[in-house]
Design a protein around this nucleic acid. Structure first.
Lengths: 142, 142
DNA sequence: ATTAGTGCAAACAATTTGCAATACT
DNA sequence: AGTATTGCAAATTGTTTGCACTAAT
């Protein structure tokens, strides 16, 4: 699990730790994930880095970040695929109209659910992760 | 919300209600959703209906089913997009190795969470839906 | 008869890949 | 120096669209 706020120094260490070379592309992309509080799409980071990094590199970088657990895929119910930094575990509320996203944290109730599921299920005894996403309408869109 | 078990009769009524014509393609595709306990991809239903229905029709049908609320998109963390019949609300546990899916139901704890979120959030007072998905390893893959 | 739905082929968008050039350790 | 990473262009995959034909109301 990563820290809340990441600095350039941290980037380098994280990459080294994961056995990835520290390149300026990776730093730039990581910086975007770190600066953005909300999940973003490959396209978004490409837009921010146009003329600096090739699109293929964006995809390759996102893919290797995901492989080493630096970022995670978020399950919003939108057409595109979203990713966010894999630091503090949290959930999202998504506005079905404008796409606005709010984070929230929740542990105790979900822990109860997980415990009960593992007890009941004959097929699943190991649960590593979970995602809980809420879909509603934000106050602006009411 | 739809009934637990959909019959052809119900199906015809739903389509009529939504102003959609009842065609054999739609019946076949609905039958697949109805027969499959697990979420499926557009590709899967295409594979089952090859030589019977064109791929474009599959996509168009899935799209209109979704629009009228007959099916819903499921948030698994896989590359492809999954859909399932929009009848009884439930959640999934997905095996990270083989993709095996198990359903489970849960209400009370989640209701508590929703209540608390709405109370706390300044931006979201309306929550219409939610998705909770667990990711783990099934007994076959341990 | 009218209009929605379908098949086919072509178009598109998002993502991936091969390869030679480049940058990191 | 040696290997991983990048840029570029081409390939691939998943999905959508235009249009003439067919089928449901």
């Amino acid at each position: 699990m990563l820290k809340e706020k990441l600095l350039i120094e941290d980037f380098k260490n994280i990459l080294k730790e994961k056995g990835l070379k520290c390149t300026s592309s990776r730093e730039m992309i990581l910086e975007i994930f770190s600066g953005n509080k909300r999940p973003i799409r490959a396209e978004d980071s490409y837009n921010k880095l146009k003329n600096k990094i090739d699109e293929a590199t964006i995809y390759r970088t996102i893919s290797s970040f995901k492989k080493v657990g630096l970022i995670r895929r978020v399950n919003l119910r939108r057409e595109s695929v979203y990713f966010e930094l894999n630091n503090d575990h949290h959930h999202h509320i998504v506005c079905e109209k404008c796409g606005e996203i709010e984070d929230f944290k929740e542990n105790s109730e979900i822990e109860k659910i997980l415990g009960r599921i593992v007890e009941k299920s004959s097929r699943f005894k190991i649960i590593n992760e979970h995602s809980l996403e809420l879909f509603g309408v934000c106050s602006k869109c009411i």
